[in-house]
């Protein structure tokens, strides 16, 4: 598990949590599609990587899952946010905002002196 994967998985987890907060509950395929749509198709998610991330979130207790039936009567696993997940989402959102803010200061041209 390289460092890049870790970072990537972190952001992916945040996206998953955010998605589940808006539309709950949702199956894996739905989450993947939703992330793509939200990103304005700028992100090409490899759908396969989503499942280990979901499993990790579930093991950590941020999401829970149960079997259900999809719109077209297919058996599918539905994921939804837990209470702990909601808190984690808030926390990660705050952290992420902070990170981006700091990065933005670095990247904004000519503002070093301010």
């Amino acid at each position: 598990m390289g460092e890049r994967a870790e970072v990537w998985q972190g952001t992916l987890a945040l996206m998953v949590l955010k998605t589940l907060q808006a539309l709950r509950p949702l199956h894996g395929y739905g989450i993947a599609r939703r992330i793509e749509q939200t990103s304005g198709d700028l992100l090409a998610v490899n759908y396969g990587t989503l499942y280990p991330a979901l499993l990790k979130l579930e093991q950590e207790g941020y999401v829970s899952s149960e079997w259900g039936t999809s719109d077209n009567h297919r058996k599918a696993k539905y994921y939804k946010l837990t209470r702990a997940g909601r808190k984690q989402l808030e926390k990660e959102t705050r952290e992420w905002e902070q990170t981006t803010e700091i990065l933005a200061r670095f990247l904004a041209p000519g503002k070093e002196s301010a």
Binding site: G28, Y29, G30, Y51, S70, K77
Partner: peptide, 13 residues
Amino acid sequence: DFSVEMESHLQMH
């Protein structure tokens, strides 16, 4: 279980 989940994912896609 995971096979079933993959299968339904594929079908939906």
